[in-house]
Design a protein around this nucleic acid. Structure first.
Lengths: 342, 342
DNA sequence: AAAGTTTTTCAAAGCGCTTTGAAACGAAGG
DNA sequence: CCTTCGTTTCAAAGCGCTTTGAAAAACTTT
């Protein structure tokens, strides 16, 4: 059953039926009732494809998920972000259009979304410091919103980010205040904007405390458990090993924990760990006293907010680009304790 | 730039330009060349919305992700499955349309996908024993593919499943052969088809070995770490506690492990654990000797295969519904060892 | 009762593509 | 040279909705 058939059944024009169903005011309550009843009776629902063409809106938001090389894959942060965003989309009648793509196909994927008019807007996740997607999307003139920032891009663009620098600065200062002097940094790849900011925060805290930054105590790489393990194992094997670690995620912190325990040391007593905690629903660092002392900011909440902001932007594309900087919260867990200089 | 403008520039009809770009044979190589070059020059790409209406195909596959109550949410199995499927979609030019929906809105969501023609096909994940979605989709006459099965549905429908029963039967027998007699089952909710089959496998192995099934040794619930922990903690607190556990997932097994260690016992020596391992990329149970002895079957591979089968089905809807039963593989890890009767 | 308003309904024109059925063209055959 | 046939191109008709601009109907006002 399509609109034409339905309108014939009712002896009304397509116009009237369409308006009745879409809640326009210029149709009497009586006919609206007739129409909605008939629509239900004949089980009519408007064809999404046709509506999309007629309105110029697809009611869907594009997400591109990069799938690097072999295994780094769809990580949990992406997943939780999407879960948050998806919730908002559902509420607002949008769908999420997901495309999984090799790292080098990202740009082309965004382009295809934009040029073919396949989505009404796109989300950009995990920007690098000088992320080409941003200029690209601005030029393509499609609404977008960046989760994170690209430090090296100066033109205004819409973003929502967590204050990574301050978060890690706070984390590092916390360890210093506990009496730690040799503090390792187990970071993500520093082409990622957030990771580079985290290093800045780490350095800033050390410097502020009059400590020197020892490059030998820092590592960056895939934000996986094995990688956190290896980094910590190496650092712990050095002479003059660190007594504390700042880890860039819970997952890496779990690797650090394993490395510490492998050496027969105890987390929170012999070695302290503070990490960034995206509050991933699946890896809860929760309870009365959570395992990890952490800087927490919910990535799911960020997803929700990004979705909301993007939808607003779709509705009012001319408004100045929104920007939002969130602060992470220090959560005291059992993984941090007094250091040798306490 | 749209098709009409492009064809005017070229002094050709829309027909010819369209055919040239879509690789139809009835256009001379010479004009095809002219057309593709002009298309590139003017940066033309066909409007997806219009094409979708004209062809009747959206080139996208619907996935509905249920988000129960508050927190059980988008779990890792869903995520990995989607990662696998998404890979195939990308290769074949499909997008994934994702909708996150409350548990009680699932049926309506599938319906809206189907009736409005928003997607070309849908994937059904985690069916219950008598899942209403299957009849519903069959009636709606939209291509679909079930990952898993619904035991109580007899009509043929397309599915791909892992042989859960045999997998858990093998796991349980493995423990019995190691000399365990009191074996706990830490299962998912048994309305889920796969969970009910896993229980069947567990019971079958016990019975085959002449042992009686003690309901007091089985638990079922959310497949989360905390839930695995609680189940194991309770079971271990009983007098005549189990010396081994069969867990329905790695995540639950991690909870079991924690409970065992909390009692000061050691996994693989004092208490054995075998689990089902979906080979989730993010929770690798890997290495030379993996932590858990497990029945492994990659959910990501299943996602790929499901996507492939669904696309085939979209292309040939009249073919008999495909069905595929995969066997899981026993992986020896360090979590299982001789029991008291060895 | 005529004229003016407001409310309700309609016919038709898109939206930008694909695809059908016919026409124009060129080459081949008689 | 005319006919026939295969190749290449085209005009026009959808696809199923929304939306514009106009007409019809129902009320008001004079």
């Amino acid at each position: 059953m399509n609109l034409r058939e339905l309108s014939r059944q009712l002896n009304l024009s397509q116009t009237t039926v369409s308006r009745a169903l879409n809640g326009y005011p210029e149709v009497s309550e009586q006919t609206r009732k007739r129409v909605t009843e008939a629509a239900r009776r004949y089980n009519y629902s408007p064809n999404a494809r046709a509506r999309t063409l007629a309105t110029g809106r697809t009611m869907s938001i594009g997400h591109i998920i990069p799938m690097s090389k072999q295994n780094e894959l769809v990580n949990m942060v992406f997943t939780d972000f999407i879960a948050g965003a998806g919730l908002v989309y559902a509420q607002q009648g949008y769908d999420m259009t997901l495309r999984i793509v090799a790292d080098d196909g990202k740009l082309a994927a965004y382009r295809s979304f934009a040029e073919r008019g396949a989505v009404d807007g796109v989300i950009v996740q995990s920007p690098t410091r000088d992320d080409p997607r941003i200029d690209y999307l601005a030029a393509l003139d499609i609404p977008f919103l960046v989760h994170g920032r690209a430090s090296e891009i100066t033109k205004p663009y819409p973003w929502l980010d967590v204050n990574s620098k301050r978060a890690i600065e706070t984390a590092t200062r916390h360890l210093i205040e506990l009496g730690h002097r040799r503090i390792g940094l187990v970071n993500g790849h520093e082409v990622m904007d957030f990771a580079s900011r985290r290093r800045e925060g780490y350095c800033a805290a050390l410097t502020a405390a009059g400590l020197v930054v020892d490059e030998a105590l820092t590592r960056s790489g895939d934000m996986s458990e094995p990688n956190g393990y290896e980094a910590a194992r190496d650092l712990l094997a050095q002479q003059d090993a660190p007594t504390a670690f700042v880890a860039s995620s819970i997952v890496m912190a779990l690797g650090v924990k394993r490395a510490v325990e492998d050496r027969g040391l105890r987390i929170g007593r012999d070695v302290s760990v503070v990490c960034f905690d995206d509050d991933i629903s699946f890896l809860p660092n929760a309870g009365e006293t959570p395992l990890f002392t952490a800087m927490r900011s919910s990535v799911r909440a960020a997803g929700q907010r990004c979705a909301t902001l993007l939808i607003e932007r779709i509705k009012a594309p001319q408004a100045p680009p929104p920007t939002e900087l969130w602060e992470a919260e220090l959560i005291r867990g059992t993984s941090s304790g007094p250091g040798p200089f306490a």
